[in-house]
Design a protein around this nucleic acid. Structure first.
Lengths: 207, 207
DNA sequence: GCAAATTAATGATTTATTCAAG
DNA sequence: CTTGAATAAATCATTAATTTGC
């Protein structure tokens, strides 16, 4: 019905769409990955995610990159707003109650190990292990062309990461093949992978 | 003498530097292009620039992209600061000289056809033609991998642009080959090509 | 002179904003 | 009005300059 799917639509063949529109499945998968903890996937991860999502329609690495970028940002601002609202209603509702003054405006940062609820640039997540920026997550893949050979720093995708352990959310994982993913009651986010791009807290450890 | 040049230095072969350090020539060329008006080169331009600069040492597209990004931003803040200083010293030095009050704080924007000296987001250059965001200048080239094939929007580098009309600055244009660029007294920037990525002034043309 | 210690530059990332397609 | 795309601003993190004590 709708012209989901990014590429050309219409009888005239080539068309060059102006912007990618994720299919339902793609969106679902992405949101799921987000829920699993992915925020700033690195290049490898973007690669894999893109490949996987391609099964559900046209998609490029940069789309994935942008999606996470935007989703993260918008979740954040949504949260912020929510806090403000709370803060506001607190001020509004409790302003005259001097007793409650130190209570409101509290965290509202459910998970994430409780640290910082948006402090400009506080790297929230736990460190992946080593101290340096996890191999740079790096932006997107040239939309047109670029990406010079640059000799050979081959980076050797050593770990082949393991996103998509089984079927991400459950809502999808069908369509191309009609393998209905059966039961998936408790989802219990189990983030046990690298995914966490950024550094650990305390980034400035000057000697 | 100095270890300019990004790649491996030292007898042991591979080395993997963490960040690109432009050679004198590369820097000179980039600054020159900047002076010529380039601010946000699009992918094609980045391509070409990169290729050219590669003659002077290891370099990648993203380096070029970043360079312009940073240079632009820093020029901007430098200018801003300068203006502030002027404003300040005016207030400080001339405050008591009511006569001079209208003089200082002036442009300070030497060339660039006199328009805008940092107006938040004013695209200085002449319009390329159409009104929409010029084919997106787009960010860099994946540092590691990415850049999915994405079928074939081949973009066909139709115009092959013409940056580097002759020898950019003059300070360089030698090194790989010992072709000393002889005389180059008047350089008279002659920008007569597409190079100008951005849009015409007034980017925000809301209807 | 010259190497550790500081500081200044500046390459690379991330975050915030803005534009605009749908 | 939602959200993909792009750009600018703010940071972070290295590298190169410079300074300093010897």
């Amino acid at each position: 019905m709708e012209s989901r799917n990014g590429v050309s639509r219409g009888p005239s063949g080539a068309h060059a769409v102006s912007r990618w529109s994720p299919t339902k499945e793609q969106t679902a998968m992405l949101e799921n990955l987000y829920k699993q903890g992915i925020r700033t996937p690195n290049t490898e991860q973007i690669q894999e995610i893109t490949s996987r999502l391609r099964a559900y329609g046209h998609i490029q690495g940069k789309n994935v990159f942008y999606w996470f970028q935007n989703h993260k940002a918008r979740q954040r601002q949504k949260l912020k707003q929510k806090q403000q609202n709370i803060s506001y209603s607190n001020n509004f509702l409790l302003a005259s109650h001097p007793i409650c003054q130190n209570v409101a405006c509290a965290p509202y940062c459910s998970q994430h190990s409780g640290i910082s609820f948006y402090s400009q640039q506080a790297k929230i997540f736990a460190a992946g292990g080593n101290g340096s920026r996890i191999e740079t997550a790096m932006p997107f893949g040239m939309p047109k062309q670029l990406q010079q050979p640059d000799y050979n720093y081959t980076i050797r995708s050593s770990k082949t990461l393991t996103l998509f352990p089984l079927h991400p959310t459950g809502i999808l994982e069908e369509k191309t093949a009609n393998q209905v993913s059966p039961s998936h009651s408790s989802i219990s986010v189990d983030v046990t992978d690298t995914s966490y791009g950024s550094l650990g807290v305390d980034k400035y450890g000057h000697p």
